[in-house]
Structures are given as structure tokens and as C-alpha cells.
């Protein structure tokens, strides 16, 4: 590396005198978002352990619940139809939890400072992680449904109902990913982010995901009935297998939108606050 080549690196090739200094332009439209979504997707694809987990976990859970617990819970063999929505949400929650880790990692390394000292929306980094998580977990959902069909899942949904179910699942993934992203912003380190997020992963167990709510003790049944996961489960179950919908869909959409809003406001505040001090 010689002096002249380095001068070229700074001013452009064959510039005898220093060229007028260039300006760093603001990326046009949603370019920053597109570039950083692509970055996060690349991260997901190169994280082989996480990718393997995204395929293995749904497969193993599906097999476990169908063949190990299924017989005891419903000897007639219909448990697989009952349990699919629960496993979808369980896997989506698990897959989304790494968002907290990715966000915390970006916030504690120098990369966020570099973006913040450029004329761009630094928050595009978060958009990138959230969108990548939604895509990643929709893929995991596809794996769940694929394995479920292989082990005897017989959905009755029309194409419109499929579409609605997938849209609701995507909305749920967006909601839980946003929460995890905010947790990643609140955490002081990537390890802490991992630990805080753990609590969210337990919620599906205390819902109608695996057993009907009325089989639970009264106090737990009340919680399971009114916690946000249950209406989401019930709505997906109704769309896919034709069980009673009731007002589950409204509650499901309402909860998810509320969580996205909370995460956006909370995360926005955290992001601005952390802007001032690492």
C-alpha cells in the first residue's frame, strides 16, 4: 500500500490535487430500510444454529405433542388439530426472541454510533431486525404446518381463511418481535436481553394452546382466559379447523396492535435515550 494509492483512495484515482471533499448524501426514500433489512436477513441466514433451531424446534415439538402427549390428552387422535396453533405461536415466540439479542448487540457495539453520525434514519437498524424476524418466523410457521400435515393435521380452512390465519400469525409475530426489540433496547447487554426475554416465552403454556382453559384450576383459568395469547390461539384455531370463533378475532387483533403500539412508543423512547449515552 503506497502513499499515492492511499491518496487515490481518499480523493479518487488520478487526482493530482486533493479533490473537493465530498458530501455524504442522505439515502433516498426507504433505501436505508431496504439495505438494513437485507443485512438482518443475511444475519439470520448465516446464524446456522438459529436456522437449525428454527426447523428442528417446530418439528420436535410437533412430534412430541402429537405422539407423546397426544394419546393421553385425546385418545381419539384429534389432538394434532387442537395443538397446531399453540405450536405455531410457541415457535414464533422462540424465533422472535433472538431479535432482543441482535438489537442489544447492535446497541452495545460501535455500529450504531456510525449510523447515528450519518445523515440517515438510524432507527432503520431496528426496522431491519423486525422485518427479518417476521420473515424468519413465517418460515418457521411454514415448517410447523408442513410437519403437522405429515402427522395427520387436517385443516378445514378455505383459501380466504388460510389468508386470514397467516395474516394474524404475521401480526402476532410482528407484535412479539417488537416487544423483543424493545427489550433488546432496554437491556444493558446482549446476555441481559436474552434473560429478560425468557418470561415472554412462557405465556403460551398458560393459555388455551395445549389444553382447554376449563381444565385448569379456577385462578389459572381466569388468567389463561384473559391473557393475550388465548384469543390469538382461538382465532387461528377457528380459522384453520372451524372451531367456534366468538369475539376471539377482535381481541386477538386488538392485543397485537396494542403490543406493537406499546413497543413502538417504549422502544422509540429508549432508542432516543440511548442515543445520548452508550
Amino acid at each position: 500500500m503506497t502513499m499515492s494509492t492511499l491518496i487515490d483512495a481518499v480523493t479518487g484515482p488520478s487526482a493530482p490535487a486533493p479533490a473537493p471533499p465530498a458530501l455524504r448524501m442522505r439515502p433516498r426514500g426507504l433505501t436505508a430500510e431496504a439495505v438494513l433489512i437485507r443485512r438482518s436477513i443475511t444475519h439470520s441466514l448465516r446464524d446456522t444454529e438459529a436456522l437449525l433451531m428454527a426447523v428442528l424446534l417446530p418439528t420436535l415439538l410437533m412430534l412430541l405433542f402429537t405422539f407423546v402427549f397426544g394419546g393421553a390428552l385425546d385418545p381419539s387422535g384429534g389432538y394434532v388439530d387442537y395443538v397446531v396453533p399453540g405450536i405455531i405461536l410457541l415457535c414464533a415466540g422462540f424465533g422472535a426472541s433472538s431479535t432482543a439479542l441482535y438489537v442489544a448487540r447492535d446497541m452495545t457495539t460501535g455500529i450504531i454510533d456510525r449510523f447515528r453520525t450519518m445523515p440517515m434514519r438510524a432507527s432503520a437498524v431496528l426496522t431491519g431486525h423486525v422485518v427479518a424476524s417476521v420473515l424468519r418466523n413465517l418460515f418457521a410457521t411454514g415448517v410447523v404446518i408442513g410437519v403437522a400435515l405429515l402427522v395427520g393435521f387436517r385443516p378445514t380452512a378455505t383459501p380466504a381463511e388460510w389468508l386470514a390465519a397467516v395474516a394474524l400469525i404475521a401480526l402476532y409475530i410482528l407484535a412479539i418481535t417488537s416487544l423483543f426489540a424493545a427489550i433488546g433496547l432496554a437491556a444493558s447487554s446482549p446476555d441481559a436481553a436474552n434473560a429478560y426475554g425468557f418470561i415472554l416465552l412462557f405465556l403460551p403454556y398458560l393459555s388455551s394452546a395445549f389444553v382447554p382453559v376449563d381444565t385448569l384450576p379456577d385462578w389459572l383459568a381466569w388468567f389463561a382466559e384473559h391473557q393475550p395469547i388465548t384469543p390469538v390461539i382461538e382465532a387461528i384455531r377457528s380459522l384453520l379447523t372451524g372451531t367456534l370463533m366468538g369475539d376471539a378475532a377482535w381481541w386477538a387483533v386488538g392485543w397485537c396492535v396494542l403490543f406493537v403500539a406499546i413497543a413502538a412508543v417504549w422502544g422509540g423512547r429508549l432508542f432516543r435515550r440511548r442515543a445520548r449515552r452508550r
Binding site: R24, M25, R26, P27, R28, T31, A32, V35, L36, R39, T42, H43, R46, D47, T109, G110, I111, D113, R114, F115, T117, M118, M120
Partner: peptide, 26 residues
């Protein structure tokens, strides 16, 4: 700015880092 902790993306390659930053710089 070249900050104290290296502001590079560890997962991406060297070229991907540079292209990403070029795109983010307009």
C-alpha cells in the same frame, strides 16, 4: 467517525460491510 469499539458488522464480509455503508451514504 471511527469509534473506540470497531464499528464493523462481524457477520458480514469485508466487502458487504463496505457496500452496505456506501448504500447508506447515498
Amino acid at each position: 467517525l471511527t469509534g473506540q469499539s470497531a464499528a464493523v458488522d462481524q457477520v458480514l464480509t469485508g466487502r458487504e460491510n463496505l457496500v452496505m455503508l456506501a448504500r447508506l451514504s447515498g
